[in-house]
Structure formats: structure tokens, C-alpha cells
Amino acid sequence: MSAGGRTAASVEVRYTPTAADFREARAAWDRHTAAGRRARRGRYTIAACPAVLSALLGAAGWAGPLPGVLMLGALLLLLAPPRLQLRRVTRLAADKGEFRVLVDDYGVVVENEDSVTELGWPEQRYHLETPGLLLLLGGSEETGVLTMLPKRGIEDVRRLEELIDRHATALVPE
């Protein structure tokens, strides 16, 4: 991995992303960031419209299949977008092969077969921890950009957590 002349103490993470990683990251993002909570509320609101219409039609005595079709539509509107997004992101990541991430006092370098991305700590101000991941979030709590660090790819998790804590603020649920 090219460190670009970096001399500070660093931690390297190597992993191949899985669908489970992305699912866990998305769930944490949805729960712990303002943007994630807004997106989740939006999905619930959109799905509620056909569900309410279905209930109103049923209460009005509508005997046709429309109320059932509307309920099925509401369920699809709630479940399909996150699953389709997960599938798309997993496919894109699979094409990039193994990810190598170097975390040090200067920031984060993410390298894969296609690219190298360097992010300073001002660009990764926040972090989240889940049972299987450490997540770094960009610029503000409103952002949807994150760097995923699966714990399975880390030899010294405690050292990485200490390094991240020195430079990024932990997000706590509201």
C-alpha cells in the first residue's frame, strides 16, 4: 500500500466487503445520522400512503382486490429500495476486489484495484461502532459518505479505536 511518505503510527485494514457488511453499515447509518433518520422516515411516509388508502377503502366497504394490492404496494415501497441499493453497492464493491485501508494520524487512505482515495481527518469527522464494523463518516452528520472498516480485517482493534477516537467524534443515537 502506498502511504505517500506517511511516518505516523498507523493501522492497516484489509478486507473484501460482503453484503452483511453493507447491511450492518446501512442500519447504523439509518439509526445514528440525521440523514439516515430522514431517509427512513421518508420510506415509512411513502409506504404509509397506500396502506392508509387501503384501510379507508376497506372501511368504506370496497370489496375488490384493490385494498390488498395497495397493501402489497406499501410493503414493496418499504422493503424494496434498501434491498435494491444493497444489491447494487455489493456488486460495485465486488468488482473492486480487496480493500486496503491505512488509518493514521493524518487521515485515511482507501485503496482497491480501481482507485486510491485519501481523506484527511477533517473529511472524516464522525465515527460509529457496530458489533462487526467501525464506520467513519465524512464532513457532517448530514452526510451519506462513509468509510467501512470491518473488525475481521483488523489485527489490533483497540489500537484502531484509540486512533479514531483521537481524531473523530463518536455519534450517539438521538
Rank of each mutant, 00 (worst) to 15 (best):
S2A: 11
A3K: 13
G5Y: 08
G5N: 13
R6W: 07
T7F: 05
T7V: 14
A8I: 11
S10V: 15
S10D: 14
S10F: 14
E12A: 15
V13S: 15
R14A: 15
R14P: 09
R14Q: 15
T16Y: 14
P17D: 15
T18Y: 11
T18W: 11
A20Y: 12
A20L: 13
F22C: 11
R23Y: 08
E24C: 04
R26Y: 09
A27G: 05
W29T: 12
D30G: 07
D30T: 15
R31M: 05
H32S: 11
A34T: 15
A34L: 11
A35M: 08
G36Q: 10
R37D: 02
A39D: 03
A39V: 10
R41E: 01
R41I: 02
G42P: 00
G42A: 07
R43H: 02
A47T: 07
A47I: 04
A48T: 08
A48R: 03
C49M: 09
P50L: 06
P50W: 06
P50Y: 05
A51M: 10
V52A: 08
A55N: 10
G58K: 11
G58Q: 12
A59D: 07
G61H: 08
G64Y: 05
P65V: 12
L66E: 03
G68C: 01
V69H: 01
L72K: 06
G73Q: 04
A74F: 01
L75C: 04
L75S: 06
L77E: 02
L77R: 05
L78H: 04
P82C: 01
P82V: 01
R83I: 00
L84P: 00
R87T: 00
V89L: 00
V89P: 00
T90W: 00
A94K: 06
D95P: 00
D95Y: 01
R100M: 01
R100E: 04
L102C: 05
D105W: 01
D105A: 09
G107W: 03
V108N: 05
E111D: 06
E111W: 06
E111G: 06
E111H: 10
S115E: 14
T117Y: 06
E118R: 15
E118S: 15
L119C: 13
W121P: 06
P122E: 10
P122S: 13
P122M: 12
P122N: 12
Q124I: 08
Y126A: 05
H127E: 02
L128W: 02
L128N: 05
E129Y: 04
E129A: 08
P131M: 10
L133F: 06
L133I: 11
L133R: 10
L134G: 10
L134P: 03
L136S: 13
G139R: 15
S140L: 08
E141R: 15
E141I: 13
G144T: 14
L146N: 09
R152V: 10
G153F: 07
I154W: 08
E155A: 14
E155G: 13
R158K: 14
R159L: 11
I164Q: 04
H167S: 04
A168C: 03
A168D: 02
T169I: 02
L171S: 07
L171F: 04
L171H: 06
L171K: 09
